[in-house]
């Protein structure tokens, strides 16, 4: 489903962020990508929605080589992925409900159906009845849950999260981790990066460990 084949990423100045990474993630897996800051986790995750392209090697999503995807096709790839980033990246001049609706507006869903799905997504992350509020009035954990609701509202088959609990305290981080587990149990492939080794340990995920751009461990091997 997600295949990295000898992927190298070089930045100007000959800085190598990823040095020949290869792995394969099957449908329905829960995978935790771990490593210290600068290990290459974010760079690796950015290659899946083609925010970054590899300097060498191939990235395949559902059999499609996305590393050479033409620019016009990228939005359609991203519509099938759920993305949660370190910062919630919410639009603070819009309500929680409007933020969650945004992916459906982009894909041109009929308004009534979009509203129904946004309500369901908010309920799924435990924010039912909070749609009318503005994001600034929510806690950090709640804002991240809104971001997760926005990521799942399109019912993606792959959910990618880059350090989603980085700015949260332990209690909120545990809630977010359990949310990801519940999506995975519903059949969604989840790939989440974290520098917190024990956060997902109770769910026994597959672990990919990165260090200085090299894959140093894969619990599936």
């Amino acid at each position: 489903m997600i295949v990295f084949d000898e992927v190298v990423k070089r930045y100007p100045g000959d800085y190598v962020a990823l040095a020949g990474i290869s792995f394969e993630i099957r449908h329905g897996e829960l995978v935790v990508l771990s490593g210290h800051s600068g290990a290459g986790k974010s760079t690796l995750l950015k290659m899946i929605p083609v925010i970054e392209r590899p300097s060498e090697g191939v990235v395949r999503i559902n059999g499609q080589d996305v590393s050479r995807l033409r620019s016009g096709a990228i939005p359609y790839l991203r519509r099938n992925l759920g993305l949660v980033l370190q910062e919630s990246r919410l639009l603070f001049d819009r309500s929680v409900f409007e933020n969650v609706m945004l992916p459906l507006v982009i894909t041109g869903h009929p308004p009534r159906d979009a509203a129904r799905r946004a309500d369901a997504a908010l309920e799924r992350v435990g924010l039912e009845g909070r749609g009318g509020e503005m994001p600034a009035g929510l806690s950090g954990g709640e804002q991240q849950r809104v971001a997760i609701a926005r990521a799942i509202v399109n019912r993606p088959s792959i959910l990618i999260a880059d350090e989603p609990t980085a700015h949260l305290d332990a209690a909120y981080a545990g809630e977010i981790a359990s949310l990801f587990k519940s999506f995975n149990e519903a059949g969604v492939t989840v790939l989440v990066s974290t520098h917190d080794e024990i956060l997902f340990s109770r769910y026994q995920p597959r672990r990919l460990a990165l260090a200085k751009g090299i894959l140093v461990g894969d619990s599936a091997c």
Binding site: R78, L83, L85, I106
Partner: peptide
């Protein structure tokens, strides 16, 4: 700027 960047990440086309 932020709205544009977020929309891009969520799959908005250039035309949108």
């Amino acid at each position: 700027r932020q709205e544009i960047d977020v929309s891009r990440l969520l799959g908005a086309t250039d035309r949108f």
